Amino acid sequence: MEGKEEDVRLGANKYSERQPIGTAAQGSDDKDYKEPPPAPLFEPGELKSWSFYRAGIAEFVATFLFLYISILTVMGVSKSQSKCATVGIQGIAWSFGGMIFALVYCTAGISGGHINPAVTFGLFLARKLSLTRAVFYMIMQCLGAICGAGVVKGFQQGLYMGNGGGANMVAAGYTKGDGLGAEIVGTFILVYTVFSATDAKRNARDSHVPILAPLPIGFAVFLVHLATIPITGTGINPARSLGAAVIYNRRQAWDDHVSSLTENWCNLV
Rank of each mutant, 00 (worst) to 15 (best):
Q156C: 11
G148Q: 00
G181N: 04
G45V: 15
G91I: 11
L103A: 05
L215E: 13
I211N: 14
M1I: 12
A171S: 11
S28Q: 12
P210I: 04
K48Y: 15
G144H: 00
N264W: 10
D178V: 00
C266S: 08
Y15N: 11
G148N: 01
S260P: 04
T86C: 09
A85L: 14
I89N: 14
E183C: 03
L65Y: 01
E2D: 15
F222C: 10
G177I: 10
T228C: 15
T193R: 03
I236P: 11
W94L: 14
Q157E: 11
G165P: 06
C147A: 12
A55N: 05
K4D: 15
K176Q: 14
G150M: 02
V185F: 05
R250S: 00
G76D: 10
A62G: 00
M169S: 07
V61L: 02
G186L: 01
N264S: 12
L10M: 10
G22T: 02
R202V: 01
K153I: 04
P230S: 11
V185K: 00
I57S: 01
I21S: 06
Q90R: 14
K153T: 06
G109W: 11
S49E: 13
D255A: 07
C266D: 10
S70I: 11
A85V: 14
P238W: 08
I69E: 02
Y192H: 07
Q141L: 00
K128R: 10
G144K: 00
G177S: 05
P38V: 03
V191M: 02
D199C: 00
V152S: 05
I71F: 03
I229C: 10
P210E: 02
D206C: 05
F195Y: 06
G173C: 04
T23G: 07
S82W: 13
G76C: 07
I211Q: 13
